[in-house]
């Protein structure tokens, strides 16, 4: 059940850090492989990613990784070298920080934070700093436009994201992610507590808002103007090659993994399985969470590969004219119901 030996806090910290560090590339790898390579290849009748390595093109991702590592590291002459080099790291660090508070079991969480949700959302928007740095330091107009678009977009969509989450927080009565999971597992809806109360049932509006806003935060397709390949080539990433580009890539998919995990935790009941407690829950928790987050991620990538891209002004209009008012209404409704129906 528990590890029998006592471990000092330093060792614990090291182990935890290592695990989270492992999770980012692992998550990125899993999402990249499952959705970017396999699902997209099936949707688009692509032959290339289905070929290498024999069975179902399993080798493609490895090959891509090798390719990225082999590539020459190019830095533009005009680039602000230090900022240019630092930007990908900041993007990945922001992803890293989100994972600190996502619980994968009753005890399997790196850091119990009472402001967990808000911490997660706050650090997730740190990546915009990295994006801005990348765009500015590249000394490329496409990169600059991409970075400015990204900044405008992330600011605009941080709000609906928060407003969507506030509904959950009100209903759960806590900002601690573990607390939210427990609230869902122990909750009941219309007197039924057989499978608890995943907040997707009561917070469906919030869930949709969260997914839309998360898609924008991730700069995925209906909202991918910052990287729009057909106009800005690759936006702020345009001057990055090889390993540095790989960092952005990992950051992008790692963040997608984190947001899918957040959505699963906030709305789908997280790691919890009703009726399973104790050590077994710790054991099964990561698997349950993984299944749920893959379901969310499937949806996110499905949209990503299907939809066209909005224009910058249309994107802002959607955020300010629709999502934010809906989010506010959702909060008001949740609060009223919370008070009226104890």
């Amino acid at each position: 059940m528990t590890l029998a030996l006592e471990i000092g806090w330093g060792t614990t910290l090291a182990i935890k850090t290592l695990i989270v560090l492992m999770i980012i590339p692992l998550g990125a790898l899993i999402l990249g492989y499952t959705f970017l390579l396999k699902m997209m290849s099936h949707m688009q009748s692509r032959l290339g990613p289905m070929d290498p390595g024999g069975f179902h093109g399993w080798f493609q991702l490895v090959g891509d990784g090798i390719k990225f590592l082999q590539k020459e590291d190019i830095m533009p002459d005009e680039a602000d070298r230090r900022v240019f080099a630092l930007a990908p790291a900041i993007v990945v660090i922001s992803t890293f920080l989100i994972f600190l508070v996502i619980p994968t079991g009753p005890r399997l969480v790196v850091q119990h934070l009472d402001v967990g949700v808000f911490y997660a959302l706050a650090v997730s928007s740190l990546s915009v700093v990295g994006v801005l740095m990348a765009g500015w330091a590249s000394a490329n107009k496409f990169a600059l436009i991409g970075a400015l678009r990204a900044a405008a977009q992330l600011i605009a969509y941080e709000l609906p994201l928060l407003l969507a989450v506030v509904g959950v927080v009100i209903q759960a009565g806590t900002m601690n992610l573990n607390g939210i999971v427990i609230a869902q597992a122990n909750g009941s809806i219309f007197g039924m507590d057989f499978f608890g109360n995943p907040f997707i049932l009561t917070q469906i509006v919030g869930f949709v808002l969260f997914l839309i806003a998360a898609q924008a935060e991730l700069t995925q397709t209906p909202f991918d103007m910052p990287v729009a390949e057909s106009e800005l080539v690759a936006g702020y990433m345009v001057e990055y090659t090889g390993f540095r580009f790989l960092f952005f890539f990992i950051g992008e998919f790692g963040t997608a993994f984190a947001f899918a995990a957040l959505a699963a935790t906030l709305y789908l009941g997280g790691y919890a399985i009703p009726g399973v407690n104790g050590g077994l829950a710790d054991l099964l928790g990561p698997i349950v969470l993984f299944v749920k987050l893959m379901a969310v991620a499937f949806f996110m990538f499905w949209v990503r590969f299907t939809y066209p891209r909005l224009r910058e002004d249309q994107l802002q209009a959607i955020a300010w004219k629709y999502l934010i008012p809906i989010g506010l209404l959702n909060i008001i409704a949740t609060a009223i119901i919370k008070v009226a129906v104890p």
Binding site: M40, M43, Q44, S45, R46, T221, P222, D224, A228, S230, F305, T306, Y307, P308, R309
Partner: peptide
């Protein structure tokens, strides 16, 4: 045209 407005999938169908 799908690719120009950001939708990746139709472009591959077109080529296919």
């Amino acid at each position: 045209m799908g690719l120009q407005v950001g939708a990746l999938t139709p472009a591959f169908w077109g080529f296919r």
